[in-house]
Design a protein around this nucleic acid. Structure first.
Lengths: 232, 232
DNA sequence: GCGACTTTGTGAAGTTACGCACAAGCGATC
DNA sequence: GATCGCTTGTGCGTAACTTCACAAAGTCGC
């Protein structure tokens, strides 16, 4: 997939779990926990302990046998691996509820993402301040991206404006895009896009709920059969 | 994992993709496209065509060789499989920006999720109307869940209130929980929880951006070496 | 109706991820 | 400083997922 690979490649599945570990470990650190075993971390993350150890081993071996891992050092290593050891400048396009929620979402600044600007095309929203950040007009995007060397853009617009937002981001020089709008946006080669659809997880959830319900119904039907087997 | 399995089990990886297909197909339908090939759908979803065909085959074989798939029928089948052929009643806990964004998010109602209530513990927020829904006090939760037979609860509270929200949801009788707060919540056995951390995808994105940057730096270093090897 | 062309459905091969099981290593205790 | 208990790091078998490749099955034009 990726044409570039430095010395040790970390599996995608592991990369997807690192943020979870990082969050749990940071939490533990705040609670004064300075050492943790793979077993404990596995319980917190609801995964297998061997998986935790293998995941962590991709970053080098930082645990002590018989003891566990130093939480602070682990946090440092994961942050470094994820590129969170320096600030990332990001911009948010769309100052609706979602844009505002993202701006106010502590998880971003907490992890080293600095919101350099939130933009909207609607003059009504421009100049309003949300979460300490003044909303700017979309026309100022290029300037801000260039000046603050922004490399990541977040699309929080309605679906119909998402492609336009993506185009403007690309033109401004952003190289990675996080798309919260429920559409697939087209971008030139070399630009990374990741999509987050807030309703996808809900649908996965209802799929399982659905199965649970039908399974229960079938059990009832079978039980009924074995008693008065008239409905063969 | 799941103790129940009806006739044909659909792989998790496929279930996770079905919502994407559904959304793309619905979009196509709106554009007047009535037939689609696995190849076209694969391009839209940015995946392999064989994967699309295999995914769709788990729901039974609804395509026509030499022609493709009937978009409308496919939409119907996916919806049925995901349990979207009937309405799901959901409640949202937390009326902050995220809760409001979710309430106003078209993707929910569009797919058959009916927001039966949005709740907050803060009296300041209670009785305000967001997205056509009046914010209620958390104390009314049990009543609404019972009356409207709600089975899915969404947590959109700050991290520190998430566990309390989960407890209240479980007590009220909800059996599936979608958690947007960046913490892991504990629930009794038999309750499904899925977590969505808005910053996880951002971290995966910056991981790749990071790698891209270091790969480029290494290339420059190598190029520099071969030209004027003074910076060994 | 027949041949050329298209696209599905799916065995089989290939790839990635998971988890067991255990040797290796570290700390503590006497 | 040897023994014991605990936890890491990882080789390896297995499972899940992806992709290839092609026969089967359909359409279309003549």
């Amino acid at each position: 997939m990726s044409p570039h690979r430095s010395r040790r490649r970390i599996p995608d599945a592991t990369v997807a779990r690192l943020p979870i570990y990082l969050q749990l470990l940071t939490e533990q650190l705040e609670h004064g926990v300075s050492n943790i075993s793979s077993d404990e971390l596995a319980t917190l993350a609801a995964v297998n302990a061997a998986k935790v150890r293998k995941d962590l081993s991709y970053m080098g071996s930082y645990g002590t046998r018989g003891v566990g891992y130093d939480v602070e050092y682990l946090v440092y290593q994961i942050r470094r691996e994820l590129g969170l050891d320096h600030e990332w400048s990001i911009v948010i396009l769309g100052a609706g509820h979602l844009g505002q929620a993202l701006t106010g979402y502590g998880g971003f600044s907490e992890r080293g993402y600095s919101i350099e600007g939130i933009f909207d095309i609607d003059d009504q929203k421009v100049d309003v301040t949300v979460g300490g950040v003044r909303v700017r007009h979309l026309d100022e995007l290029n300037q801000v991206v260039a000046q603050r060397s922004v490399s990541i853009g977040v699309i929080a617009t309605p679906a119909e404006s998402a492609q336009d937002a993506a185009d403007r981001l690309v033109k401004s020089g952003v190289t990675s895009i996080l798309n919260f709008a429920p559409v697939v946006v087209n971008v030139p080669l070399g630009i990374s896009v990741r999509r987050v659809d807030l309703s996808v997880e809900l649908q996965i959830l209802s799929y399982h709920e659905q199965r649970r319900l039908t399974a229960a119904a079938q059990l009832r039907a079978v039980a009924g059969d074995s008693v008065g087997n008239s409905t063969a």
